[in-house]
Structures are given as structure tokens and as C-alpha cells.
Design a protein around this nucleic acid. Structure first.
Lengths: 174, 174
DNA sequence: GTCTATAGATTGATAGAC
DNA sequence: GTCTATCAATCTATAGAC
């Protein structure tokens, strides 16, 4: 994961991986069928963990509370896993077509959760959104971009950044 | 550009590029010193074009108008160049360290324009932003994510999507 | 289950004829 | 300025000894 995040899937050789995990050339194939499945397994685990952790959140009653819970959850989950997040956004095109479809479906289901929250809130008159799908994608793009904050040297605490981002999301849909 | 955007810099061979532009192996080196400079030139041109186009925008008086002009400009510029944008976000780590520094500096200067708009607006009491740097990064992340809208099959017109995104930005900083 | 050795293909880049 | 030929290195993956 570290090597893929740092240099990119295509630029990392099996020999580099072997050196990193402490076996010599060839022995790695006792643990994986090929290089592609190393990438796919990282993707799959990340997406499954994401959904599992989301479903484990305590339920909220109002659309506002559900949106806040989703936003704060998304921010924290992504800030805790910068490498896995990076790979999951950058290496999609290095998945084989069938593996890509699997991951894309998992991603759409996750986005669908936010979309459903926005729909419920809009129908209840709590949110003002022109298009729930577009708005959901915009919110997720903004929240996921939070990882670039720390890469670009912002010196705020996690709680402070979380508060800023949630505040922007709240206002953007009101 | 098409090949790098589709498969990624590291996964594209010089022979693929040669085939695409219609010369045979070897002749390409009459036009470029090496593969790295092909990538760097794409980056540099994109960043220079971005800044040139921004500076060519008609000036606006109020912070609100300046923010709207910036947001709409950013959206349109990025929607018109999905491939160059994709490369400029995905292939940063495939630049050599010295090339990376050049591009990173250009990027920071562009982000600085939005930051300055937010500062002016905040000092004038027009915007409510807790941290101009974090807010600028969040806005740019959201706006740049607009390209995923069309990849994910949203069937709205450019003007409609632009209106939705600008509306979210406007509310988020108010 | 790890090692060495290697197959077979491909890589970026260069040389030299034309 | 394009071509063919090729170098030297590297790639993923496998074979077989231990």
C-alpha cells in the first residue's frame, strides 16, 4: 500500500514489494496470484471497510443530523487512511475492467447513502438542493479533498478542519 | 495527452506514443529529449494556460462578483479540458523532484488568487470563512470534482451544473 | 514456504543507414 | 528527419532445488 501510494501501481515492481515485505523474488507468489490482485485487494478492503464503518454509525433522526453524521464520519475515515484513499482515487484505471466494475459498484452504493439523505432532507423542506446526485458528488469531492490540506501544510488540528468542512457542507445545502 | 490520461504515465510506453502520433520507434526523440519532458511539458502548458486565461478575465469590483467570476471560470476551464486536468492531478508523483517543484509553485499561485479573494471579502464583512487557506482548498477540490459528474453519467447541461456548483460555493462562504 | 535461476517479453533510449 | 536494428536494463511470472 505504501509503495503504490507513493510511486503508483504501474511504477512499482514486484521486486520492490518483495524487498519491502522481506522475501526474495518469487516467494511473493505464494501469497498472491499476481500483481493485479494486490491492487484489487487493497481497493476491495478499503471500500468494504468504508461501508462497514458507515453502517456501524449510530442512527440519527433528522436529515440535518444524518447529514452531519455522514460528513463528520467521511472526514474522519478519510483523514485516518490517506494512503488507501489516495490509491482508491488514483489507481482506478489500473484495475482490470471486471475489477473496476466491482469497485465502481461499491463506490456508487456509498454515494447513494448521501444522495438518500439529501433527498429525504429536500422532501422534508430542510435542504435546498437542485440535484441530489450532483450535490452528493460535489460534497464528497470537497470532503475527500481534505487530505490535500495536510499535504499542503495547513497547521490546524483535525477537529478544527473537520469543523470548517462541516460548516461549509451545512451552509451549501441550506 | 490522451494516452497518459487513459492509462497513466508509467503504464504508457514510448512505442505506444510513437504509434499514436504516426512515427516509428526512435523518430520521436527528434521532438523530445525523453519521456519525462513529455509529461512535464503537458503539466507546464496546462498550468500556464490556466493562469493566462484567469488573468484575461474581465475584472470585477466586489468580492462577491470576484468570487463568482473565479468559480465560473474555474468550472468552465476544467470542464473544457478533462484530460489535461486529469493528468495534472494524477501524475504529480511521476514528475522528477525539480519538475514537481516548478508545477507545485504554479499551482500555489493559482490557489493564492482564490485565497486573496476570500481574504478581501472576509475583511469587508461579505464572507464568513474561518480559514481562507482551508476554504480555498475546499472550494477548488469541490469545483475540480465537477469532472466526475460527467464521468458518472449526470445528464445536465454545462450551464445547469455550473449554476449548481456556483450556488453551493456562494452559500458555503456566506 | 523460501530460495536461486531464468524464461520471455517489454522497457527507454541510442546508433547509423538513408 | 525517418527508418531499422539493437543495447542494456527491467519487467511479471514460473520452475525446480531444498
Amino acid at each position: 500500500m505504501t509503495l503504490f501510494a507513493r510511486h503508483g501501481y504501474a511504477a512499482v515492481s514486484m521486486r520492490q514489494i518483495e524487498g519491502e515485505v522481506g522475501v526474495q523474488a518469487g516467494a511473493l507468489y505464494n501469497y498472491t496470484t499476481d500483481k493485479q490482485s494486490l491492487l484489487f485487494d487493497l481497493f476491495k478492503r478499503h471500500m468494504v471497510d468504508l461501508r462497514t464503518a458507515l453502517d456501524a454509525q449510530p442512527p440519527s433522526a433528522s436529515p440535518q443530523d444524518r447529514l452531519e453524521a455522514f460528513a463528520r464520519f467521511h472526514i474522519r475515515f478519510h483523514l485516518e487512511r490517506p494512503q488507501a484513499v489516495f490509491i482508491s482515487y488514483m489507481e482506478l484505471r489500473n484495475l482490470t475492467p471486471e475489477n473496476f466494475r466491482v469497485i465502481e459498484e461499491l463506490r456508487r452504493r456509498y454515494e447513494g447513502v448521501l444522495e438518500a439523505i439529501l433527498e429525504t432532507g429536500r422532501d422534508a423542506g430542510a435542504f435546498h438542493v437542485a440535484d441530489t446526485r450532483v450535490t452528493a458528488l460535489a460534497i464528497i469531492a470537497m470532503l475527500t479533498g481534505i487530505n490535500t490540506c495536510y499535504r499542503s501544510g495547513v497547521r490546524l488540528s483535525l477537529a478544527e478542519v473537520e469543523a470548517i468542512y462541516w460548516d461549509m457542507v451545512r451552509k451549501a445545502v441550506t
